[in-house]
């Protein structure tokens, strides 16, 4: 198996994008390697025109629909790799949506870019992440160099990034700010038994208008996060615009793996499997540890969500 390669590619025009992307894709196809591109619809169209007939052999996804949140995205990459596990090398061109994202989302996606160095370690994935300097913020372009070990301008060369940061350090900085305080007077319940926490969440979800299935899925997510954290714990539930929030606070020691729950369950059961499930079901799962315990904050869509599949 080949070693994982994770590169950023900063481009400022359509031509620069194609100068990098086309050789990367064509080389992969020539080697018989699986190739996937997940980028904007604009760039997909450019690639289609540039590649001509060869484009038919390229897997593709409009980037907003290839993993809605970072945990889904990381899982989608791993699954793509697993699907072609008989290949030494799998090529992925992956350009997330950056513009229009909230500050917290930008941070979450930078965090994931750094985390991919660990999540995909040991795979034969060669991933190039294009950054459109015409649209991304200066901080996004700057951090691309910190989250990618190397850079590429032609889709072939591997130029080490001078500012690459160790992922654990980078993620530590992302997680440095404390989570916003829970609102005063929110529902707070002491939990001694997992059965109580899942019932509480299912009931609260239904009371706030979640339909049966979604309330049950949320209950499963909170149950699994609680199992990871361990009982006894204290659960707090409140609602804000766009999210039903559930804080779980337990006494256990710090959760040291910053990417716990980003890798999907494998053949052997692992402790973090439940956390992975929680991350798939929820919009956000944030973890903070301090001297007195550990908090897992889960946020799920409310009944007001109008998105369609």
């Amino acid at each position: 198996m080949s070693e994982m390669i994770h590169q950023a590619s900063l481009y400022g025009s359509d031509a620069e994008f194609l100068e990098m992307a086309v050789p990367f894709i064509r080389d992969g196809l020539a080697n018989g390697e699986p190739v996937m591109v997940t980028t904007t619809s604009g760039n997909l169209e450019l690639l289609g025109e540039a590649l001509g007939d060869d484009a038919r052999h390229v897997d593709y996804a409009e980037t907003a629909y290839f993993g809605r949140r970072t945990a889904q995205r990381a899982t989608a990459f791993l699954r793509y790799w697993q699907r072609y596990a008989d290949h030494k090398r799998v090529r992925i061109l992956a350009e997330p949506v950056w513009s229009g994202k909230s500050a917290r989302d930008v941070l979450a996606w930078k965090r994931m870019e750094s985390g991919l160095n660990l999540i995909l370690a040991g795979t034969g994935v060669w991933m190039i992440c294009p950054y459109d300097t015409r649209t991304v913020g200066a901080d996004v372009a700057r951090d691309a160099m910190r989250t990618h070990p190397s850079l590429s301008s032609d889709g072939r060369q591997i130029e080490p990034s001078p500012t690459y940061a160790d992922p654990v350090d980078f993620i530590g900085q992302c997680d440095a700010a404390p989570l916003p305080e829970a609102p005063r007077g929110c529902l707070t319940v002491a939990i001694d038994d997992l059965q109580d926490v899942r019932r509480l969440v299912a009931e609260e979800g239904r009371r706030r208008g979640l339909t049966g299935e979604r309330a049950t899925m949320l209950a499963v997510a909170v149950h699994e996060a609680s199992r990871y954290l361990g009982v006894p714990l204290s659960a707090r539930i409140w609602e804000r615009f766009g999210a039903l929030v559930c804080d779980l606070r337990g006494q256990r020691g710090p959760i040291s793996d910053p990417l716990a729950g980003f890798r999907p369950p494998g053949p052997e059961e692992r402790q973090e499997d439940g956390l992975w499930l929680a991350r798939q079901v929820c919009e956000y799962v944030d973890i903070r540890s301090d001297d007195s315990g550990c908090t897992i904050r889960l946020q799920a869509a409310t009944s007001r969500l109008q998105e369609s599949a």
């Binding site: 899942r198 049950t216 209950a219 499963v220 149950h223 199992r227 369950p265 059961e269 499997d273 439940g274």
Partner: peptide, 10 residues
Amino acid sequence: VSFIDLSGLR
């Protein structure tokens, strides 16, 4: 079945 966790599914 009203609830099944990940280990039950496994």
